[in-house]
Design a protein around this nucleic acid. Sequence first.
DNA 1: AACACGAACGGAAACGTTTCCATCCCTACC
DNA 2: GGTAGGGATGGAAACGTTTCCGTTCGTGTT
Lengths: 342, 342
Amino acid sequence: MSNGRQSSMADVAQRAGVSMATASRALNGSPGVAETTRERVFLAAQELAYVVSPEASRLARGTTRRVAVVVPHISRWFFAAMLEGVEGVLREAGLDVLLYHVGDCEDRRDFFDRLPARRKVDAVVVLAFPVDEHEQRRFQLMGVDIVAAGGQHATYPYVCIDDEQAGRQAMDHLLFLGHERIAMIAAVDPDQPAALQQGRSDAYYAALGDAGLPVDGQLVVTVDWGGAEGATAMDRLLSLRNPPTAVYAHSDEVALGAIRSLRRAGLSVPEDVSVIGIDDHPVAELVDLTTVRQPVEVQGEIAGRIVVDLLSGQAAQKSVTVPTQLVVRGTTAPPRGARQRA
Amino acid sequence: MSNGRQSSMADVAQRAGVSMATASRALNGSPGVAETTRERVFLAAQELAYVVSPEASRLARGTTRRVAVVVPHISRWFFAAMLEGVEGVLREAGLDVLLYHVGDCEDRRDFFDRLPARRKVDAVVVLAFPVDEHEQRRFQLMGVDIVAAGGQHATYPYVCIDDEQAGRQAMDHLLFLGHERIAMIAAVDPDQPAALQQGRSDAYYAALGDAGLPVDGQLVVTVDWGGAEGATAMDRLLSLRNPPTAVYAHSDEVALGAIRSLRRAGLSVPEDVSVIGIDDHPVAELVDLTTVRQPVEVQGEIAGRIVVDLLSGQAAQKSVTVPTQLVVRGTTAPPRGARQRA
DNA sequence: AACACGAACGGAAACGTTTCCATCCCTACC
DNA sequence: GGTAGGGATGGAAACGTTTCCGTTCGTGTT
């Protein structure tokens, strides 16, 4: 079926009876080629099942048509969804995406030491991935555009949500329901420099302050990101003399873990304790979890579009903040006291 | 900090006082270079912050050091986890990963028509992605190694689980608990040629047969993959005059949806109805879902290793089947009748 | 002392495009 | 009718490596 050798552009040119220069122009859609000639070239190319050698083309052109996407946790929904968004628009634009998983600190050091993407891509997008100063300097060495998604970033064009506002939406919902003793389970990624989700914590204190409620340090527990960790945190909160009536978790996974702990303790959600998360993870709908939705895939798409604009030379918008939205489901309700009072 | 131009190998050679041929050999670790010379070259390269131009190198070498990973649904845990596994070992081996999301049928047609990865990669791995005959012929055109992961595939080396056995483990568990009226919610991917999860369905009938139980067609419902669809399916089952006492779902997400329907109907799990899934999705643990675990990331890793072996010339093992394992949690229990009887 | 041999190295031809520049020819305008 | 101008084309120089050969030189053998 396939004859052994890949045919080269010279073959195409010869078959079409033109020079390589013309063949190249014809195939690339460059101007200055007669329409009939162009057709002849295309026909020849098709007959030979010809495809350009990307290496040669890129070597000559000096551009790679490739962009690196670096992501800390591929298998977590948040990152995967974002990745899906980015990939979609990049593929649409004819750009190839090179995937780099940079998980733990060691990966991270290795990545910035070796810079494996260097000279391989025209741009890189970092997903929810704070970059410290040293790393910025390394990036600079690559001499390509950088855009950030899902984690605010002053240095590069970015797209993200307003974490503090998202947190406020969650907290205000609990406050509106009448809760006064609200715990926060703050999730941090152990493999990343912190300060990413600071906004979500700020919201907690601000909301309490605005509501005139005191802050009880015991009600704040910080854990590594993850469902199991959320459960542990909830256990800790349940060991208090005066446990909370509501829990604000930094993410849906953490919230899920908290709910498991509550159920195992024989408490029911939301009758005994309300729980709210952030993200609107797909399973949130399946388990009736109240949460604050952020459009994850959309953020990826926007990041992708910024990259495309940047590469096509047009000045892209520097950064975008997408809105979040409270989604009330079945894990939040007024506290028992309030209900009885009503 | 960075002087404008990327330095080329010629610069390195000159600075080290050798020819380009020697510089190239030194940098690649090829034999036939004196140790002192090699050091001198490395030093020069480092001083100039030199990195080879991958395009040029690959053009000359004729190999790309890149492999394509094509995946139908990036943001679903199963695929993302597998991707993470593949990426890990490929990156370890110094191979770059080119990501291709091929979701719906249109993507699919486009992918195989245009073959965008053609001449860009040395191998491609398809994740849970049945390839029909026409598509196989297109792949052949690429002239590279193909390996399949997560979906059995006769044509290419593959890694997967034994779907029928996994299904048997789930069904046998329900049967062991004493259930006799067991429903199956079969999930199919609307964007893919079916026949992928056939084994999971086979298991249902085989298990019932071995247990001497009759098959009730009403107890089998087939839906598109997804949690919401699982809920719908459960609704249908609940509308029967004589609903099942246990539900065997083809995947955890579907099982989760089923559980939501049950809860909304006022039934409790597992007291009224038992539910079991397949996969051991991370949230399964958080919601206490009984399931059959399959090692997803490991499958990706194995697929990656097969690719690496293939590319390094050593004959790799043709295919691998990894074991699955029942994980009993809180959504399965003996049926009410059995309990009362006991 | 002549010779063979191997290690280290350099020259230069690939690899397959893109693109600058020159050439040719045809049309339109004076 | 001559010439300027522009559209279509071809020649050939990049792009930056790798690698095939050939050369040189030092060492060990007879």
